[in-house]
Simulated scan of single mutants.
Amino acid sequence: MIVITAPTGNIGRHLLSRLLESAPAAGEELRVVVRDPARLPDAARGRVEVIAGSHADAEVVDRAFEGADAVFWLVPPIPAPTPRDAYSGFSGPAVRALTAHGVGHVVGVSALGRGTPLADRAGLVTATHALDDLIADSGAAYRALANPSFFENLLEESDSIREKGVFSDTADADRKAPLVAAADIAAVAAGLLLDRSWTGTDSVPVLGPQDLSPNDLARIMTEQLGRPVRYERQPLDELHTALVGHGLTESFVRGIVDMKRAKDQGLDAGVARTPDTASPTGFEQWCARTLRPAVFS
């Protein structure tokens, strides 16, 4: 039995699709934890066991993990009072349930940067690494998918790209860094969940096929969308003010700002791209398949 949390999100929907194709042949049953079962794809209906509710809820994860052999764990991007609350606090009931039910294997969504000089002052990333340690202490074999930023973050900029030809972030315009498609993360997760010959605790980097700067992204988007797109750098203090204005706590905002600062200082640059760490989806392909429909919808 494989349990999938957040099965309708950016990564989870790709993972569910892959496992629906391959799990039956491997003799695996699937169970999903989802707040709104109506959002599950038609292909999943009648083929997965559904546990309705939040995977932050102790009763929900206790039911979900009973009899489970493996769990895909993803913390949703929900603001909380502090970064620790957002990750370890959210996941506390699940970690206790993993131990109580003797779940053998867990694959979690994490972040790059562990072991670098920036790791202990990277805000939300630091909190993510603390959660990795908490899951590893549950007794399950654990693989943390160490990811850079996602291509999908640009979907939040689709209105601005459509209306103004502009996208923004806080990184230096020429700072090259790895970027990855959510579907590629899901592919790695599916492989680990289906072939559970691994033991112990480790991280698995998923780096995309090449490093790209914001200026590179602007150039590729211009080519793929057939209209000019440019990058505007947002100062960190301006980001801070905007997030506080949206009602986030000072602690959580500081976690976001510290993460952005660390990434701009090279947090994601500590892992070499090899055939094992590279993933296949290029930004050009992702733009054509995902961003273009979003911009022109």
Rank of each mutant, 00 (worst) to 15 (best):
G113K: 03
A25K: 14
V109A: 13
T99V: 07
G266M: 11
H246V: 00
R289F: 00
D159P: 00
A52C: 13
A144R: 08
V188T: 07
A136W: 07
S54V: 04
D195M: 04
R292S: 14
A130G: 10
D216P: 06
D174A: 15
D276C: 04
A26S: 09
V34A: 09
L15G: 00
L112P: 03
F296I: 00
S160D: 12
G27E: 04
G53D: 05
A272V: 10
T201P: 00
E152L: 12
R47Q: 12
I220V: 15
D174Q: 10
S251C: 00
R175Y: 05
H55I: 04
G139S: 10
A140Y: 01
G102V: 13
V71K: 05
P280E: 09
F252A: 03
P7S: 10
A218C: 08
T116F: 08
D184W: 02
A52V: 11
E66I: 03
R84K: 09
V48H: 07
I51A: 10
P37V: 11
E163I: 00
A182F: 07
R121C: 03
S54G: 13
Y87S: 09
M259C: 06
A100Y: 01
E232T: 13
A119W: 06
T99L: 07
S251H: 10
T290D: 13
V253N: 12
A141S: 15
S91I: 01
L40I: 11
A294R: 09
A58Y: 08
R219W: 06
G266V: 02
K263N: 07
E156I: 00
A136Q: 11
S203E: 13
S138N: 14
